[in-house]
Amino acid sequence: MDPIVFAMPGSERQAAAIAACLPGRPGDAEVRRFPDGESYVRLLQPVAGCEAVVVCTLDRPDAKLVPLLWLAAAAREGGAMRVGLVAPYLAYMRQDKVFRAGEIVSARHFAALLGASFDWLVTVDPHLHRIGSRGEIFARPAIAVHAAPAIASWIGQAVRAPLLVGPDEESQQLVDDIASRCGADSIVLAKQRFGDHEVSIDASVLPAAAGRMLVLVDDMVSTARTMLASARLLREHGYPAPVCVGVHALFAEAACADLQAVAADIVTCDTVAHPSNRIPVAERLAAGIRQALQAPAGSGDTL
């Protein structure tokens, strides 16, 4: 039986694209707020004996979390065989280490909240750099699909003679993967962060421009300070304005407008809805769902 794919508010387009790749049947649910701000959910079709899939990208996650958990509860109480979560962007994964006394590793607690309600999870490139594997924080099957194949395909079609640039050491694996897939050279800059809005970039590794088009790549763009500092540095060293490519288009405050002032173009995957979305990942997510539906409890993998 094909899975039933439910969309949380704001994720309708993603859910429809994923369902079309499975195949899957679109689900229908009512999700709204009472006048006092509490969440109300109701399934508008039966799910007994079915695989229920809930699509909810988790940017700005706090307001989404309670109705998401209520919808999972409704599917489970309605008799769904299993309830899975597709979160194209998975929040709180950056908070993966205690830096100062009194902090918590939010990634572990957020994973525990989701694991208590969902039988499996599929996401795109979660930002886990200090946690060795998803199995350390997710007790259920947790599958991360990579955006690199989709990004490499877009670069191969849209950019002539690309030189891929990673803004910091954390971007090394992503940049190298994309470069190998599209047959491009790549370099990675060195970054030092001084706070949420201040970074310093070292350009000592920059080669000569040599007529190549620079593609600056990072997994998420939030304040955009890292990309801004990198793009400005590249311009100072005689390079043309780079194409800025991000996996997750979070774009806090005026980040997108600031980046537009120094970039030739801004392109992102459609994990978070944004006008810069030009790289679809529905096929990658559908592949992850198919794997999750076949996975035994407690397993996880990367596509």
Rank of each mutant, 00 (worst) to 15 (best):
R232W: 08
R32H: 09
W120A: 08
L114S: 00
A142T: 00
A255C: 07
G298C: 06
A148L: 06
D196G: 15
D258A: 08
A208D: 14
I137N: 01
R160W: 01
E236N: 14
Y239M: 05
G246P: 09
G10W: 12
A29F: 13
T226Y: 07
A208K: 15
G10N: 07
A292Y: 01
H197Y: 14
G211V: 10
I187E: 07
N277T: 06
A297E: 15
R33K: 11
V83I: 01
Q172T: 15
L285Q: 07
D62Y: 02
A17I: 00
L234H: 07
A139G: 10
G211S: 09
M8D: 10
E169H: 12
Q14N: 13
C269S: 12
R42S: 08
H109E: 09
E169Q: 11
I104L: 13
A203K: 13
K97W: 14
R290M: 05
M227T: 08
P240K: 04
P35F: 06
G238E: 02
M93T: 02
R76V: 12
A229I: 05
D196I: 15
S276L: 03
V66M: 15
L44M: 10
V175Q: 05
R100G: 11
T302A: 14
V122F: 04
A257S: 02
R13N: 05
S171L: 09
A224E: 13
